[in-house]
Amino acid sequence: MARKGRSSVSAAADYIRIAGLHVSYDGVTPAVSDLDMTVAEGDFVAVLGPSGCGKSTLLHAISGVVKPQAGLIEVAGQPVGTGRGEHSVPIGYVFQDHRLLPWRTVAQNLAIVLRASGVSDDEIDGRIDRYLDMLHISDFRDTWPLRLSGGQRQRVSIARALAVQPAVVLMDEPFSTLDEVTARIMRQQLAELWQESGQTLVFVTHSIREALFLANRIFILTRGPARVFDVVQVSVARPRRYEDPALTELEAQIVEHVMDQWGYGPSSAGTEGT
């Protein structure tokens, strides 16, 4: 099903390199099994899969939150580390929920991760202003997160991820908890932000339309344990419209393609829910 199309990729083709990845939380049931994936520098890729297939686990492994049982993960030619305080490739992570420290103001939330990333005190304020401005939330610099709306909190979370100037930004269904209008605005802004920054971005979602709207390439995972079973190149020109008929057509093709693989096809009838 691989499609050819416009690609913005010109730098290192294997900026993120994952080979033979195997992750299991209990040592018995694999969450990710034998997963291979490469992402080029500056690329925007989406990871698409059904709920519970292991998409988040994949991001956890890339960020070093979980240690894989087997396999290789390299970002910018360096293996990712695990654990607090460990020196490794800087990674920005936007979680499904914002995960801001509610007892710290917006600026302090950014300052904490910037300090942990080794940014000097002189530079921190400027960096905070720059990224809050980029995400249109400068007015909330000294506000407690609890006083912000869901969309504003997620903007802060994105600003935090970008402010550390990471090698890669990982996003785990960041708009899934927002209302549809806010989510659309956020997607639009994210697409523009990526075009401006040229940041390498891995975006996990279970929404095919969202993946098509945002990404250059879509890695489709199996139902679980997670394994890449297809890669879709999205050739629709940017800036894209969410309602673009070309996206609708691609969405229909992908739905048809994954139906059987995700256990909703005719061959899976009778097995669903068992």
Binding site: H60, S63, G64, V65, G81, T82, G83, R84, G85, E86, H87, S88, I91, Y93, F95, R99, I112, V113, A116, S117, V164
Partner: peptide, 10 residues
């Protein structure tokens, strides 16, 4: 998890 991702010191 957040503090682990951003490598906050102990």
């Amino acid at each position: 998890e957040m503090s682990s991702v951003y490598r906050l010191q102990r």
